[in-house]
Computed example of a mutant assay.
Amino acid sequence: MSFNQAVIEEFRANAGKVGGPFEGAELVLLTTTGARSGREHTAPLGCVRGPGGQGVYVVGSAAGSDRHPDWYHNLLARPLVRVEAGTEDYEAVAVPAEGARREELFAHVVREEPGYGEYQRKTRRVIPVVELQRTHGAGSEEGGVAGMVVRVHGWLRTQIGEILRLPAGEAAAPVGMQLRQHCLAFCQTLDAHHTGEDAGLFPWLAGQHPQLAGFFRRLGDEHREMARMQQELGEALRRDQGGAVRRELEVLGRRLLAHLDREEAELLPVLRALGA
């Protein structure tokens, strides 16, 4: 068993408490999705509370190595992560701090944990400070597939609303890391949701209710149209143009909200009638 795996198992068996070199330290388990492999990877990391105890931050120190840790590369590509802290287990968007904010936070980190200052002195790279921003979706006590659909749709509605409230800057202004990471996390979830519906849920329901096959084809067409919009949003992110990102988000958001309303109106009664 690897050292990390032993720490992970001890953490989970003891409500986040571990011994050895980490005894007394505040740890989280951070699960990222591989940028290339698409597989989940869990790493035990020291964490620091932000100024005034607000926010949870992890630091990409890699013990002062000249390379960023793998988990950092993963979250740049797929910002939606899972965080285990003590007995809590929650989803978050990982957002690296930028510019003056990063300098302020790193100074705070070093005051709290001076070893990070030594790691920075060992390398020329700027050690990242990453905030783990908890996501919030609409809750539902309903069980089964219907409840799952309601919860995912609630998450998507909540996230698109929050993203559209983030500043995008002037038309040609660079896209800030906050907006970039939340956009990518949103698209990550939307892709997974639509793929699951197209490959599993819709074919199964069409088998149960053949008269709805045309409706499911129309939903599939809408999924493909939104996938095209996501590609355009991704291009705007790559061009690093805040104004273009905002325009693409607004168009995608309007289309998505109408799609979710239409899907729920037809789909939820069918799922509930089936007891699914």
Rank of each mutant, 00 (worst) to 15 (best):
H136W: 08
E141S: 14
Q241D: 07
F215C: 04
L190D: 00
L184C: 06
D198G: 06
L156Q: 10
H153G: 01
G147W: 08
D240V: 03
D198S: 12
V152A: 06
V251E: 15
R238S: 13
F186K: 00
C183R: 06
A213Y: 10
E162M: 07
E248F: 03
F202P: 02
R246A: 04
A168W: 13
I160T: 11
A146H: 15
V175P: 02
A227M: 04
L179W: 04
V149W: 00
H182Y: 08
P174W: 04
L164W: 09
E222H: 10
G143T: 13
T195Q: 11
Q178T: 11
I163S: 02
G154C: 02
G147K: 08
L205G: 03
P210H: 08
R246K: 15
R165I: 02
R165L: 11
H223W: 04
L166S: 06
E142K: 14
H153R: 07
H194Y: 09
G147H: 11
Q230F: 01
R247T: 12
G139E: 15
R134W: 06
L156V: 05
E141P: 13
G176P: 10
A206W: 03
R247G: 04
Q208Y: 01
W204Q: 11
P167D: 11
L212V: 09
E141M: 10
Q231H: 05
Q211L: 01
L249N: 06
M229I: 00
V251M: 11
T158M: 12
A185G: 15
R246H: 11
R218M: 05
E170N: 10
C187D: 09
A236D: 05
Q241M: 06
G220I: 00
E141H: 14
E225C: 02
G169L: 09
D221A: 07
A171M: 14
A206N: 10
T158E: 15
A213F: 07
G243Q: 08
D191T: 09
E232P: 03
Q208M: 03
R217Y: 04
A213R: 14
A146K: 10
P174Q: 03
E141I: 01
E232V: 00
E235Q: 12
R218W: 08
H193M: 07
D191Q: 10
Q188K: 07
A185W: 07
R180D: 14
Q188P: 11
F215R: 12
G200L: 09
R224E: 10
F186E: 00
F215W: 10
E250F: 03
H194L: 07
I160H: 00
E235H: 09
A138P: 01
D198T: 10
D221P: 05
T189L: 14
H153N: 12
H136F: 09
G143Y: 11
G144A: 13
A213M: 06
Q159C: 04
L249F: 04
F216W: 10
G143N: 12
G243E: 05
A173D: 15
H193G: 02
Q188F: 12
A192T: 12
I160K: 00
R218I: 00
L156G: 02
E170D: 15
G154W: 11
P210R: 08
H136P: 02
M148R: 12
A171G: 14
G207A: 04
